[in-house]
Design a protein around this nucleic acid. Structure first.
Lengths: 220, 220
DNA sequence: GATTTTCAATCAAACGATTGATTGAATCGG
DNA sequence: CCGATTCAATCAATCGTTTGATTGAAAATC
């Protein structure tokens, strides 16, 4: 219960199948709308394994969040691990690349459809598990983006409006995932395919460049 | 079931109390996590009234969406009903005012906390009810903003990237409501009070002005 | 090295609690 | 009085959880 989430529990066939099935179902339908029987059936194991491996439905949910941190983090940390750019232009390009990556991961990548929904649900209806997702995913990306933004426009990395500007850019991407249904209605899109995803990416990058240009002007 | 949702059902004391309670509970906890007993108790009426007035839990949910359209629409249509600005500067000011209004309504206004969550839930987990919210709320605001944006930057009101730019601005606001929990973590805010709401509003307006300046430059 | 013991993992079956829905009598307003 | 509205009581269905038994492979024992 109170372990530091340091020790990765020894994997077992049923355990991992339950995690995968639970992430997919929790992500697609939410915690309350998903039944333990559904999860067990999708995983191809018996219901009792949920209590055995995770102590219950809630324990399974928390384990899903831990699993997502482990599984998704590598897909973003490779960008994060590069050395910090020193020129504003390099910083701008680095931000653009990360945002572009996020658009594809969050909005397009089919394999991350339900994981993304799982995470966004936790943002919307936070539980104690939220901190887990924050530390493993949001914090490293966001703080890196903030540092890059500070380099790109010559701002104070610690200033509140610096962090807020970055959250605005990231939030723009999240919004297109959260409100996908009504955005498709408004944009008269049937789905968000490659063409539509590219249009969104172009819009996000345009916002980035516009913000950078404006910030540089008032802080020469 | 299949009525055209045209006729506003005759109000009755218990009916309205059920609607108010249901909007609050559906918004705060979601459809599946909310029980009919909870709703009835919060409304101070008997459970049977749900079936009597709305035919069941799902009927109550749809009625909540209709009610939200009726209740919230006036709070935005007053801005929409003004005559269309003709100069780019007037258009910019009109956009800024609408966005500012949206920030306060969606992020700050305590009375709209649960209604906002109700609507955003429907965006995230769309049901057939989605079209109702789209037509009564999103479409009128969004199309008005698109027209204003076209005037402000001299763009084609029908172009896809015009609509997309507007959805990006609106989405930015929605994101701060959806991901409020994790944004508070990142911003080191305890809550989003007047000061924090103003910071968000400033950021949104800064994004607007930056986008306008950039769009004008490349389309003189 | 054969036998016994241990243990994690899985299963079918059943548990008590709660769900949304329904019923028929009671109550109210006109 | 009569239709509209409210109510306590109850329904079948489903929820998450628990139980007790079974498996197979390692560990221990002789």
């Amino acid at each position: 219960m109170d372990d530091k989430t340091k020790a990765p529990p020894p994997p077992s066939p049923g355990r991992q199948k339950l995690l995968d099935a639970a992430i997919a179902l929790f992500g697609r339908k939410g915690f309350d709308a998903t039944t333990t029987r559904e999860i067990a059936e999708a995983a191809g194991v018996n219901i009792a394994n949920i209590a055995y491996h995770f102590g219950g439905k809630e324990g399974l949910y928390r384990a899903c969040a831990e699993e997502l941190g482990r599984a998704i983090r590598p897909r973003v940390t490779d960008v994060l691990s590069r050395k910090a750019p020193e020129t504003p232009q390099e910083a701008r390009n680095a931000i653009a690349e990360i945002l572009s990556r996020m658009v594809h991961l969050i909005i397009r990548e089919p394999a991350l459809e339900n994981p993304s929904r799982f995470i966004l649900r936790e943002y919307f209806d936070p539980t104690p598990t939220l901190h887990l997702l924050y530390q493993s995913l949001m914090e490293p990306i966001s703080s890196r983006l903030t540092a890059l933004w500070a380099t790109a426009v010559g701002a104070d990395p610690e200033a509140e409006d610096t962090r807020l500007a970055v959250m605005g850019l990231v939030g723009q991407i999240l919004a297109f995932r959260v409100a996908r249904s009504i955005i498709c209605l408004r944009m008269e899109w049937e789905t968000i395919g490659p063409r539509e995803a590219e249009a969104i990416e172009t819009m996000v990058i345009a916002t980035l460049d516009a913000r950078i240009a404006a910030a540089r002007k008032e802080r020469p």
